[in-house]
C-alpha cells in the first residue's frame, strides 16, 4: 500500500490533475518529474490537465491486485486528453466491459482509486467514465 506521506505528496497530481510543463521544450509531464526526459530541463510550469479526452487503448484486468479486488473486472485505459496529453487511468461505471471501444469519448471524474482494507487510508484520484 501507498504510505500516507507518499499519497500526500501526490495530491496535486491525483486530486487536481496538476502536470509539469517543461520551460525548455514545452513537453507536458504527467505525473510531474524533476527532470524533463526530452531536454533534461529542470524548470517547469504547473498546468492543470483538461478532464475531457478519448480512449486510445484499454485492457480489462480480471484478477486485480490487493486493494482493487472489489472492483473486478477492472478496465484500465490510456486516455488522450483534449490537450494531447496521455494518461493511464481506470475506467469507472462500466456495466459490461464489452461496451468499451477505442476512440470512445471519456471524462475524468473524482473517484476512490484504492483503499487499504477496512481501517487504512482511502486513496482518491481520477477515473475515466464514458461521456454521453
Amino acid at each position: 500500500m501507498i504510505s500516507p506521506a507518499r499519497s500526500w505528496r501526490e495530491f496535486p497530481q491525483r486530486y487536481r490533475l496538476e502536470a509539469a510543463k517543461c520551460a525548455g521544450c514545452g513537453k507536458v509531464l504527467y505525473p510531474p518529474r524533476v527532470k524533463c526526459p526530452a531536454c533534461a530541463g529542470t524548470a517547469f510550469e504547473t498546468i492543470v490537465l483538461p478532464r475531457e479526452g478519448k480512449v486510445v487503448t484499454f485492457t480489462v484486468v480480471r484478477v486485480p491486485p490487493a486493494g482493487f479486488t472489489e472492483q473486478s473486472p477492472l478496465p484500465i485505459a490510456l486516455v488522450e486528453l483534449a490537450d494531447g496529453v496521455r494518461v493511464m487511468v481506470q475506467i469507472g461505471d462500466v456495466a459490461d466491459p464489452a461496451e468499451l471501444e477505442i476512440g470512445m469519448p471519456v471524462r475524468l471524474e473524482f473517484r476512490r482509486i484504492s483503499w487499504d482494507g477496512e481501517a487504512g487510508l482511502i486513496f482518491y484520484g481520477h477515473k475515466a467514465v464514458i461521456a454521453r
Partner: peptide, 16 residues
C-alpha cells in the same frame, strides 16, 4: 454508489 464512489467523490463532482 459504486465501490469507487462515496460522500467525498460525489461532493467533489457536485462542487465542480
Amino acid at each position: 454508489p459504486g465501490a469507487d464512489e462515496d460522500t467525498v467523490t460525489m461532493s467533489v463532482e457536485a462542487t465542480r
